[in-house]
Write a protein that binds this DNA or RNA. Sequence first.
DNA 1: CTGCATTATTTTGTCAGACATTTAGGGGTG
DNA 2: CACCCCTAAATGTCTGACAAAATAATGCAG
Lengths: 244, 244
Amino acid sequence: MKIDPNSPADLSAQIATAIRDAIISGELIVDARLPSEAELSEQFAVSRPTVREALKRLAAQSLIRTQRGASGGAFVNRLSFQEAYGQQITTSTLLLSMNDVSFDVACEARFAMERACASLSAQRRTADHLATMRAEIHRQTQPGLSDQSFCDSDVAFHRALVDGAGNPVLSYQLAGAVEAMQPLMNMITFSERSRERIVALHTGIADALEQRNAPKVESLLSELETYTLDIAHGIAAKRRPTAG
Amino acid sequence: MKIDPNSPADLSAQIATAIRDAIISGELIVDARLPSEAELSEQFAVSRPTVREALKRLAAQSLIRTQRGASGGAFVNRLSFQEAYGQQITTSTLLLSMNDVSFDVACEARFAMERACASLSAQRRTADHLATMRAEIHRQTQPGLSDQSFCDSDVAFHRALVDGAGNPVLSYQLAGAVEAMQPLMNMITFSERSRERIVALHTGIADALEQRNAPKVESLLSELETYTLDIAHGIAAKRRPTAG
DNA sequence: CTGCATTATTTTGTCAGACATTTAGGGGTG
DNA sequence: CACCCCTAAATGTCTGACAAAATAATGCAG
């Protein structure tokens, strides 16, 4: 692990890259302890603050964790699916909000991926997954439920569908797509009637999953996609009534 | 934007979170300049090194960029799809390597998502996408091609398929799934015969896309998934010949 | 007044040293 | 054996300073 003091890049960035490469290549394994900050600063011939900046970069990516006290230090972190979800969601959310991705494009991607889970979920969903979905559907029928809560419940419902596929990698990938759309979905005001329609579709999806009818799930998801887009377009049209 | 000096969390972590929230909420827009490190350290009542650690955390996530000199400083970064790909791939790679995700599970997720792109790609693929795929197929038939190069070409082929769907969000999601599997795929040694079979399937997929035959693409992708798993299992069995 | 070289200023990047805080471990005492 | 205290090691934070880069301001020559 060497760095180039004459490189235009920051020393802390170079050090972070060197350590990151060591982790990715397997040179540093999970739970391995890195040298102390003092030792690292000696190895790389830089000051301790510079080493610390490098370590903070790695900590921001959940690549290491630090612990104070004797026998403390920086340890290679086992990247959990949980942490990966979080980063995935943050990244996806920013990507959508900063790059003028239209609601239509995000919606299309999300439902395309969700349909990809349909057949697996129809095969493997457990009673637990079905129970979660039924519970969320029930919650969605409560009168007086705020739009925010309705959206949260919607996410939980679809999350259960995806988790039903029993593939953590798929769940991880979908988490970003589904949750990143939350801010966009929250902009949609759900009328009494549209909630009824969505709940009906959710019920149909749960029924089809119970019967392990994959094609039915897929077609209902497509209907839901179309309907979601319709609502969004209706609201967009209302906001710009003079557009033509 | 306030922080709690009595919180158990590091001050730099709190400051990073506060600024990140401001960016996500839109309080700080793209290309906006953050206060200088000296001003931030005054605002948060901490020292400059602490502020710097916070800024490095954000830089590690590509949320900000910094520039030296007068009228320099830290600016909110427009997260490009390119940068997001990179983070997605790093995260996915570590997730797979650290969590004992089996080849089967990763493979299943990858092909499920790729099939999700099939119908869109059949509708929208351009002549360019087809040309890229044909070129990669041709490369894959070259004798003496290394396994590494064959895998690279394989990634490029599937990348073209996914890009054909014309949905950048889908491309972004798939990039992680496909590229993160590279290290696993590289462990598979491709025999002469298996390469022929894979090339034949690739050719079939390109043909089906040319004819805009979505179901055919999906079924060929399923065949490719099955075949990939067969090869992997065969190699695993060879490595553990006494297992039973 | 214009154009260019020079100087100033602002800001990040880096360093050195110090103190505070937390935690594990060792050793003494009941 | 259990409990307490002390020590040592490590991260967390602060202060102050200088280096390097890039822009802005200045002054001079034409």
